[in-house]
Design a protein around this nucleic acid. Structure first.
Length: 209
DNA sequence: CTACCGATTGACT
DNA sequence: GTCAATCGGTAGA
């Protein structure tokens, strides 16, 4: 499982968010290995996006967002951790929030960490995913291209299949709420929020990309 | 030092 | 569907 290279992340966050879907997020630590297929991600567009933590410039908390692309930006919200990948270029502050993965390896480990047995509840949501994969502030600034501890790789089983991707408003954001910067795999049961219930698209709510 | 907030979750009706 | 607990970071006194 070779890690995606820096070039992958050195593109605009919308492209990276879309292309992260279907890739494998891998967590290796003393307890063992756990992984999942990314099925949901959101783009945060630096100074041109009021919902982005970097919108008002650099501070102590968001410093890693302004570091090199391909590094993890981990922050706490409502007493829970969330994982981003820094994108585009250093000093810009754009990133992709990884919102959900479909559990693959290490399911028992994830069940212990989450204290839940239902596989659908293990990593559906940005903070659940971090709990399942033991992602904390300790990994803030970690290099996702290193192939150690935490990284992202292509799915060897995908074989060039094309994913059907749906685009919608981001979840939970209070500013720039109307922008369609959330992407998820159509029909996946492992997507958070209003998604699994795949109804026809009420105009403006979600659109197939 | 205290007050307030949030890119959430889980329990509940 | 609703709603309150959650706690580290930040701002402000």
């Amino acid at each position: 499982m070779t890690p995606l290279a820096r070039d992958f992340y050195s593109r605009d966050p919308i492209t990276v968010a879309r292309e992260l879907l279907g890739r494998i997020l891998i967590r290796q630590c003393d307890e063992g290995l756990a992984s999942g297929r990314i099925v949901e991600a959101e783009a945060y567009l630096s100074s041109r996006d009021p919902a982005c933590h970097a919108y008002r410039g650099r501070n102590r908390k968001n410093a890693t967002m302004f570091g090199p692309p391909g590094h993890a930006y981990v922050y706490m919200i409502h007493a829970r951790w969330c994982l981003n990948a820094v994108t585009e270029a250093a000093d810009l502050g754009s990133a992709v929030l990884i919102r959900a993965v479909e559990p693959l390896a290490g399911i028992e480990l994830m069940q212990e960490r989450r204290r839940r047995t239902d596989v659908r509840d293990l990593a559906r949501g940005p903070a659940r995913l971090c709990q399942a994969l033991a992602v904390t502030k300790a990994l803030d600034g970690h290099d996702l291209t290193s192939g150690r501890e935490l990284w992202i790789a292509a799915d060897p089983a995908q074989n060039g299949e094309v994913l059907e991707i749906v685009r919608s408003r981001r979840i939970g954001v209070t500013s720039a709420a109307s922008r369609l910067l959330r992407f998820f795999v159509a029909g996946s049961r492992f997507v958070s929020g209003r998604a699994g219930r795949s109804r026809p698209l009420p105009a403006g709510r979600a659109a197939v990309v």
